[in-house]
Each structure stands twice: as structure tokens, then as C-alpha cells.
Design a protein around this nucleic acid. Structure first.
Lengths: 97, 97
DNA sequence: CCATCAATTAGATGGTTATCGAAATATCGA
DNA sequence: TCGATATTTCGATAACCATCTAATTGATGG
């Protein structure tokens, strides 16, 4: 099946996601990652976002900690995917306001 | 009619909304304001959120600047309403990721 | 091995912001 | 007019955070 199940977010995770989205650069990164179903290479993000590697690494960690992306490390490279179930759950949560 | 039209948010407003939501206290305030269709008195918010008046005033201004709430001042009192069209537009925007 | 390259970690810095107390403003009732 | 009350403004402070450079880790190919 193509769809993933929805899930419930902890208060902590909701807080982390909110903070993660607050930074425009992270928001951009998330959009870029989410634009591809298969995910995207870390390098590709770096090319599009004029930012140093350490800064990018920092932002990716924030997004990962919030549960918004998954980082798969393969050798020297990192591959990023949007965690669509978490994203959907967050949208569902916001919609209840 | 009960519904309000949807609208397009500027990049600036999206950034402001993201920042506004990042603070847990503001998020709570927004939920409380949104819980009532007619809105809520500023005092009522203050009773539920253990926060000083200046801090609350600061947060309300942030939410207002982001366009998420409207503040109607009546004499000594302030009445708050969620701007549901803006909120909906923001959700719509996030959903496009 | 060794050089190279992708990514991370460490440490520093400048800017932002949540918070408070004190003071100001504004409104209402007596 | 006077006192009380609701909210805002001001000024200060401490914590947080995005960003950088330099150094480190870890993997790959020659």
C-alpha cells in the first residue's frame, strides 16, 4: 500500500515541530525534501540553499529530532525523506484548533 | 453566511505565522481563542495562562501581527477572535508541502 | 596507506526573544 | 474628581538560536 497510517503526536513532538517550522530556512528545506517522493540527497539541498555544511547539518538534525524527516546515511552520503505520516498528523492536529 | 472566503498569504505572513506558532504559550493562547466562535476576553486568557499582563500583551500583539487574531478594544477591555480565514489559508498552504 | 570528499562536532559570536517589574495610559464607577 | 482596574509601553535581563570557521569523523578510490 502507498499510504502510511496516521499517528498521534505527543505534546513534546508538537512543540518540536512548531519550532522546526519557525525558521524559514528549515521550512524551505522541508519543502524541498517533501517535493520528492523518494527523498533527496543532502548535497542537493545544500546546492539550493546557500548555506554552509555545518549549518545545514544543524537544521537537518532539528527536522529529524522533530520527526519531520528521516536521515538515511549511506557511506559518506545522507539521504533525506519527509516523514509523511508525521506531517499529516501535524496538519490534522492544527486543524482541530 | 457563516463561512469566510479563503485567501492567499504573503511569504512574509507565512513567516510571521510560523514564528507565532513556535512559542508554546502562543500556541496555547491561539487554541483558547479559537475554541470559541465568538472569541474570548483578554482577561479570560490571562486567568488560564499563568502569565503577567505585559507578557500576555506581547504575545497577543505577535498573534495579531501575524494576522491570526483580531483584537477588538472596548473600553478597558480587549476581545480576541481567531481569524479563521487566515488560519484556514495557512493550513491550506502547509498541506501543499 | 594516503588524499579526498561528505557530513558532523566543537566552540564562538551576534542577533533575537520571552519574560519580568515599573510606569504609563485609558476607562469606568462612585 | 478620585480610586480602581485593564491593558500597554518601556527598559532590562537571561536564555535561546542561526550562523560561521576550524577541527574531526568516516568512507572511498587509487
Amino acid at each position: 500500500m502507498a499510504t502510511t497510517k496516521s499517528q498521534t503526536l505527543s505534546e513534546r513532538q508538537i512543540r518540536l515541530i512548531g519550532k522546526a517550522l519557525a525558521d524559514p530556512r528549515r521550512h524551505e528545506i522541508l519543502k524541498q525534501v517533501g517535493a520528492s517522493q523518494e527523498g533527496i540527497a543532502c548535497q542537493d539541498v545544500r546546492e539550493c540553499q546557500s548555506v554552509t555544511a555545518p549549518t545545514l547539518s544543524h537544521h537537518l538534525k532539528e527536522l529529524e529530532t522533530a520527526g519531520l524527516i528521516r536521515i538515511e546515511r549511506e557511506g559518506r552520503f545522507a539521504h533525506l525523506c519527509l516523514q509523511r505520516d508525521v506531517w499529516r498528523a501535524y496538519l490534522d492536529y492544527l486543524a482541530t484548533i
